[in-house]
Simulated assay, not measured.
Amino acid sequence: MLPEAEKRMMQMFYVTLWQSAVDDWDAPEVKQNLAELCNSKNMFSELMEILNYNLERIDVVGDEVDLGFDCPLELYCTYTRDQILVAMDFKKPQTVREGVKWLEDKMVDVFFVTLNKADKDYSPTTMYNDYSINEEFFHWQSQSTTSDTSPTGQRYINHVHEGSKILLFVREFKKDLAGAAPYTYLGTAKYVSHYGSRPMNITWHLDNPIPAKYIKKTSKLEVG
């Protein structure tokens, strides 16, 4: 009965609490989990306190990003990888191990970028060189196996002509005090140019400029 955007919000809520996406909201396990949450006054109260605490401390007002479908993700807001993927109807977020995901049904390429890469967390082939050039342009390095003549490379280069979108999600470090660090949504980007192959080094033009509060974190001066 909910609008599409709110259904996706419910998916984000559910995957946050139970680490799995919902295929069928009438499934017994799903109904039981939600019923137990609603009936647990302590848990329900604690969740509301956390939400209200965070709401009072929001320092960025999010804005909608036109993706061609009702997506609850808002510009400059912060999300986990699983929340991002289920918000775009991908029900198996745990299967995504790489920093890129092509969602063909949505015609969207999702980039998960970690700026400061510690050697112990990344192999030599995944130590990508990613940073903002300024508030409007971002340098991004593809996976080491992606050539500029491959279907993936050609999709990146010709995405505007082919009607697909590039979404950029960025975090400073892989982990924070709570565990896996979340990503900040920098919105959509358009291909400008590239050099090299396997990997490709691509310059993207951001449709929305990076806010001042993030630019120092994303610039090359800070990350390398």
Score class of each variant (00 low, 15 high):
residue 121 D to E: 10
residue 119 D to V: 13
residue 32 Q to E: 15
residue 196 G to W: 04
residue 143 Q to C: 02
residue 15 V to Q: 06
residue 127 M to A: 07
residue 152 T to A: 07
residue 135 E to I: 07
residue 26 D to Q: 06
residue 36 E to Y: 14
residue 49 E to V: 02
residue 87 A to W: 06
residue 50 I to K: 12
residue 181 A to M: 04
residue 191 Y to P: 01
residue 44 F to N: 12
residue 129 N to I: 13
residue 16 T to Y: 05
residue 138 F to D: 06
residue 26 D to T: 05
residue 41 K to V: 11
residue 98 E to G: 07
residue 168 L to N: 06
residue 209 P to C: 11
residue 59 D to P: 00
residue 65 V to Y: 01
residue 214 Y to K: 03
residue 134 N to V: 00
residue 99 G to L: 10
residue 110 V to C: 12
residue 196 G to K: 06
residue 174 K to Q: 14
residue 224 G to P: 00
residue 129 N to G: 03
residue 178 A to H: 14
residue 223 V to Y: 08
residue 8 R to G: 01
residue 219 S to W: 12
residue 151 P to F: 09
residue 69 F to M: 01
residue 22 V to A: 08
residue 36 E to W: 15
residue 101 K to M: 12
residue 182 P to A: 04
residue 182 P to Q: 06
residue 216 K to Y: 08
residue 30 V to I: 13
residue 179 G to Y: 04
residue 98 E to F: 11
residue 125 T to Y: 13
residue 194 H to C: 06
residue 42 N to M: 09
residue 11 Q to R: 09
residue 29 E to W: 09
residue 72 P to M: 05
residue 51 L to N: 04
residue 214 Y to R: 02
residue 112 F to M: 09
residue 9 M to P: 00
residue 72 P to I: 01
residue 21 A to G: 01
residue 157 I to Y: 02
residue 153 G to W: 02
residue 123 S to V: 13
residue 199 P to C: 11
residue 178 A to D: 15
residue 22 V to Y: 05
residue 3 P to L: 08
residue 199 P to A: 13
residue 27 A to P: 00
residue 78 T to H: 08
residue 165 K to Y: 05
residue 67 L to W: 11
residue 47 L to M: 09
residue 216 K to T: 12
residue 35 A to R: 11
residue 183 Y to P: 00
residue 102 W to I: 08
residue 209 P to L: 13
residue 109 D to E: 14
residue 113 V to A: 06
residue 126 T to H: 15
residue 175 K to V: 13
residue 125 T to H: 13
residue 161 H to W: 09
residue 183 Y to E: 03
residue 210 I to S: 07
residue 49 E to F: 01
residue 82 D to W: 05
residue 32 Q to T: 14
residue 203 T to L: 12
residue 99 G to V: 09
residue 179 G to S: 02
residue 12 M to P: 00
residue 76 Y to N: 14
residue 135 E to W: 07
residue 175 K to H: 15
residue 21 A to F: 08
residue 183 Y to R: 02
residue 80 T to G: 04
residue 46 E to P: 00
residue 102 W to L: 07
residue 33 N to W: 11
residue 62 G to I: 06
residue 2 L to W: 13
residue 163 G to C: 05
residue 211 P to Q: 01
residue 79 Y to K: 05
residue 12 M to R: 11
residue 64 E to D: 02
residue 163 G to T: 06
residue 42 N to E: 14
residue 7 K to F: 07
residue 126 T to E: 15
residue 126 T to G: 10
residue 124 P to Y: 04
residue 184 T to N: 11
residue 144 S to V: 12
residue 131 Y to H: 15
residue 109 D to I: 14
residue 180 A to D: 12
residue 130 D to N: 07
residue 150 S to W: 03
residue 219 S to P: 04
residue 180 A to H: 07
residue 127 M to E: 06
residue 89 D to H: 05
residue 214 Y to V: 00
residue 48 M to E: 15
residue 187 G to R: 02
residue 26 D to W: 03
residue 215 I to N: 02
residue 35 A to Y: 08
residue 168 L to F: 08
residue 199 P to E: 14
residue 219 S to Q: 14
residue 22 V to R: 11
residue 221 L to G: 15
residue 166 I to Q: 13
residue 63 D to Y: 10
residue 170 V to R: 08
residue 149 T to L: 10
residue 25 W to E: 03
residue 52 N to G: 08
residue 220 K to G: 07
residue 187 G to Q: 03
residue 44 F to C: 12
residue 190 K to N: 14
residue 127 M to F: 06
residue 223 V to K: 09
residue 181 A to H: 06
residue 194 H to A: 04
residue 208 N to M: 12
residue 158 N to K: 09
residue 58 I to H: 10
residue 124 P to L: 07
residue 170 V to A: 07
residue 213 K to T: 06
residue 47 L to G: 03
